[in-house]
């Protein structure tokens, strides 16, 4: 293939990224340096041209404002905490499933993989809404527990942080299972046989051979769950309680309730910068893996 052809082929993903990631992001950054006003659109211009004078107005007040109120700090902390705990739970649930699928014979394997992915074919919103019916006071779980006599008062589960974890684990489970499965299925069986031959009990083989070899899959899965969970809005909104504070809700409030697009944009920019850290760490880890 000619050099030009090769270049234009590579250009496609780059153009995609520039058009659908970089340009929107630059617009958000731009808005974050403006001031709100009553107009369409509801923020001021950065560059104005009047009386043959070009004026550039950069308002850093929005960023400054984020540091004057500790709400934003606590919302970040709380989002990261919830996302972290949820990721660990997803890993604990997802790893055994991925392991079982990888160990199954190839016919069942495809069926099992299908079962993992099938729920994603219905709307995300509807699947989360279904949990409302399962978790509420006169919902599936409470009614079942009451009817078998285990409890006599319903246990409040809906509108608690517990429900948020359930929602995240449920919704993001495929993103955890698939990379771990992809990793485990490539695992060389002879390594396990060798360990067994040398007298290692199965649990030790798992800890010393299988687990370390699936590290890349675990990290990929955790990233895929953690990053979207931090900014999650729908799950805490539908399943969480009034006291569940997450950055997605704060963003909504700035944008819709305060109608302050500039501050909302500043929150979004900071959130992206904050998420950039785990993403870069992950990328660095991956490239090191490829080199090794």
């Amino acid at each position: 293939m000619s050099k030009l052809g090769a270049r234009s082929l590579i250009a496609v993903p780059y153009i995609w990224l520039v058009l659908f990631f970089l340009v929107p992001f630059i617009i958000v950054v731009k808005i974050s340096f403006t001031e709100m006003q009553y107009a369409i659109p509801p923020y001021t211009d950065i560059v104005t041209w009047a009386d043959e004078a070009l004026t550039i107005n950069l308002n850093i007040g929005n960023y400054y404002y984020l540091f004057t109120d500790d709400l934003y700090f606590w919302a970040y902390i709380s989002s990261v905490r919830i996302a972290f705990i949820a990721t660990i739970c997803t890993l604990l649930v997802g790893y055994p499933i991925a392991y079982a699928i990888a160990r199954a014979d190839s016919a069942t394997r495809n069926a099992l993989l299908m079962l993992v992915m099938l729920p994603s074919w219905t709307s995300f919103l509807i699947r989360i809404y279904a949990w409302v019916g399962i978790l509420k006071n006169n919902g599936l779980i409470n009614n079942a527990l009451i009817s078998v006599g285990l409890i006599d008062q319903p246990v409040p589960m809906l509108n608690t942080e517990f429900a948020v974890y359930v929602g995240i684990v449920y919704a993001y489970l495929p993103f955890m299972i698939l990379p771990i499965y992809a990793n485990l299925v490539k695992l060389d069986n002879s390594l396990l046989e060798a360990a067994a031959d040398l007298g290692s009990p199965p649990w030790k083989t798992f800890l010393k051979v299988t687990l370390p070899l699936s590290k890349a899959g675990i990290i990929a899965g955790c990233m895929l769950v953690f990053i979207p969970s931090v900014g999650e809005f729908v799950i805490p909104e539908m399943l969480g309680g009034a006291e569940t504070l997450m950055i997605g809700k704060v963003l909504w409030q700035e944008f819709f309730n305060n109608r302050d697009w500039p501050v909302a944009s500043a929150v979004a920019v900071i959130m992206l910068l904050l998420l950039l850290l785990p993403i870069t760490l992950f990328q660095r880890y991956q490239s090191r893996q490829l080199e090794a």
């Binding site: 009034a242 504070l245 409030q253 305060n258 109608r259």
Partner: peptide, 19 residues
């Protein structure tokens, strides 16, 4: 005025979440 809207919403978040 926007300042009042913001103060009201901020107070509301404090009521809801305790933050």
């Amino acid at each position: 005025p926007p300042k009042i809207t913001r103060a009201a919403n901020r107070a509301w978040t404090a009521i809801r979440t305790g933050n």
